[in-house]
Nucleic acid binder design. Sequence first.
RNA 1: GGGCGAUUAGCUCAGGGGUAGAGCGCCACGUUGACAUCGUGGAGGUCGGUGGUUCGAAACCACCAUCGCCCACCA
Length: 913
Amino acid sequence: MHDKYNPRDIEAKHYERWRDLGCFAPAGDGTPYCIMIPPPNVTGTLHMGHAFQDTIMDALTRYHRMRGHNTLWQYGTDHAGIATQMVVERQLNAAGKTRHDLGRDAFVDAVWEWKAKSGGAISKQLAALGGSVDWDTERFTMDDALSAAVTKVFVDLYREGLIYRGKRLVNWDPVLRTALSDLEVLSEDENGHLWRFAYPLTDGSGELIVATTRPETMLGDTAVAVHPDDERYRHLIGKTVRLPLAERAIPIIADDYVDPEFGTGCVKITPAHDFNDYEMGQRHALPMINILAPDATLNDAVPAAYRNLDRYDARKQVVADLDAAGLLRGIDEHRMTVPRGDRSQAVVEPYLTDQWYVRIEPLAKPAIAAVENGDIRFVPKNWSKTYFDWMHNIQDWCISRQLWWGHRIPAWYDADGNHYVGHDETETRAFNGLKDDVELTRDNDVLDTWFSSGLWPFSTLGWPSETERLATFYPTNVLVTGFDIIFFWVARMIMLGLKFTGEVPFREVYIHGLIRDQDGQKMSKSKGNVLDPLDLIRGIDLDSLLEKRLTGLMQPHLAPKIEAATRKQFPDGIPAYGCDALRFTFAQLATTGRDIRFELGRIEGNRNFCNKLWNAARYVHMATTEPVAADPEPGIAERWILSRLNRTIGDVHRHFGQYRLDLAAQALYDFVWHAYCDWYLELAKATLTSEAMSDGARAAAQATLTSVLDAALRLLHPLMPFVTEEIWLSFGDRSTADETVMRAEFPIEDPTKIDPAAEADMDWLTGFTLGVRQIRGEMNISPGKFVPVLLDDAAAGDRERVARLGPLLTRIARLERVEFHDDGELPMAATALLGEMKIRVPLAGLIDLAAERARLTKQLTKTASDLGKVRGKLDNPNFVANAPSDVVERERARLATLEQASADLDAQIRRLD
RNA sequence: GGGCGAUUAGCUCAGGGGUAGAGCGCCACGUUGACAUCGUGGAGGUCGGUGGUUCGAAACCACCAUCGCCCACCA
């Protein structure tokens, strides 16, 4: 082994080998364990959020695989309808073309080509992350089999009356020219205006003043509404006003929806372009006048002067014309929520079109029940509240999209516009009794991407065929995802899973936080704060990093700022931290229900942790090259480290079971660094090199060094697959081709190895050592120098331990000799307390009296403070009467200890005078 | 307008009714036969505020403040 841990040297080779060995495929007859990957967009790349999520899934997968479970991490990608279509359209636009120039078939071919070209990027990234997905069963949402599942679900739902076609107001994206579901619309507060216009009464008796944020829609008004109890307007209800510009008469109606306090108390009603007005229009049977074309220009339903104007140009024109007509009565600044499409960022229009909908309530009910009754458990559980809130208010789901890339809706129309649904045209004709001479044309629309992702947990396993994979792995165990797609995806999988398989798609939903930058900002290209997981793994020089961050900016004027910030944070680029350090960092940060600030200090510390493990292994190699042939006689150190190991094993299992990878990582870090390396390795050195030790003790130390390291490697493997494999293979006779730590058994806690006696001995030994070290540190005694100690007030137990643990103690504490002081004059010495015993390091002539006094005084101050608190408690009769007796006993014992320590410290300080 | 979460060391975060923790950073010392990507010692916090419950609150409850997120039809 090289003397430095270098992740670049070791990571690539193991992944290929694992793949060749078939380690990623399900195997064995153990309990099935299955995780479905949330399918990334097929033409995308993995960002930090993916890397984080994949680390969690891979750790869980490797953990269960090592426990002997028949484990499948199902991989695949999503066709990502709008997102992918937009990417390819942008490429066409850059070449001066549009998708309409190509036509539908050629465009879809172009998307497939793009998929073929770029679709492998994610696989490579996932491999670099060590993701142990089953590559052999990779799926894509537009695979033939998955598409067939989509069609079947659509047809079945339709024939059951759960899918219908209807003309309704939908969210219309005028840039993408497609309908969107409610979820794809994001509302943001923006500055706007509130205009007031006068609508004259047709009988000439006056006017009504309406307030609106969207003047252009007045051309589609079909009523003015007031509150039925509004004294100002009650007498006008039923009369009509003349709609200016359009020059139509429209009624004044009364509706509770109107808030008399807002604006003027008069609302113009445009049923075809506002969701509230739409409902009011239905209540009052108002006409609906659609005034927009699909691109949000005004159509022929408006007077000629406004036709073909963009909605915002029309707005200006309407305001100007009303002003010219003397009907503009005021403009106020107004803060309002503006709906925008989540992909295009275009302002979305409520728009009257024919679309396909899923009748959702019959599906939602069992999906709510499944979480209520515990068939599905959210982790952390408070997310179930978010789920319930949405599910209880859920609206019918608009599933048709006016796109070309996606699953085409299996519906056909005859010449009269009647629609027929079926698996294909032939089946549709047969099912509906349509003769061959009836001409059918297929629906042009495709399905919402989430319709097919909603089937992912079972369509990937072969459904609707009753495959063995489906029987084995469905329902899956856990879904690992972010809260941002609980509605988009999690809820739909639950609804569709229950509907079509009769079972929940997964038992648990583990919701993790969002990865943000070190300042808590969302990572985004425009902020210039994006970190690429691969750059953290392999490193990147400053110039390359700058190039990545600065090219292709949507807002080039931000470039100087981004460049300055990047140069400041990464003056030398980013070093290669390695995959294992990155993964361990993700694990450490994987606390539940909280966003994560990604900190480079952490990953550097964890790279150092890998190095620590690496060097510990190097020592173990060195220390075991010449095996001592003797029956092992484990000493205190051996019993102690095994005790600590088995406690750690128990902790790790518990933490994995509760998805607390942060605690698992912490427990392992602490064990490896602060137990195994800091103490056991040093004690083992003492055992192996001390003349006083038997061959049996040496043999036990060698065996324990190896076995504990071996266990630690297996425990760490799910979090740090590469370095653990590299080290693991370097031990023993693991030259055979199919050895891998991936298939080694995950350690199981052995309660018989928990050894309180050894732990107590080690507490004494470490306490002794720390006392001596503190004196060294404070007295500036070289760490390497062996010092004599004089023990005062040693109890029988102390004497026994000195005798028994002496060889370890003198080495670990670097003691020249240990003597007991029974009576007579004490030399000048620095003192540490261990229980009642005083450990004195004689410092004849060398002692810095002031320093020693300061040191002891500090301890005394602390002791006195603690003593005060303990006395306060015990002097409180209520405490003694009400607190549990073991607590009272503990406090009494502590009181005694502190009093003793206080007296001893006081005496020591006085001795210095 | 509803709902959720956060507030603990300089920074990033664990913890949890009875001695306040980690990593990084900081200070001092140090080439102890794995590791300077290291070792040893040290400094640093009345756990956001107020009130309540309790023998005991940093932890539980209520309210408040600040920050963040989600949902919602006020023109």
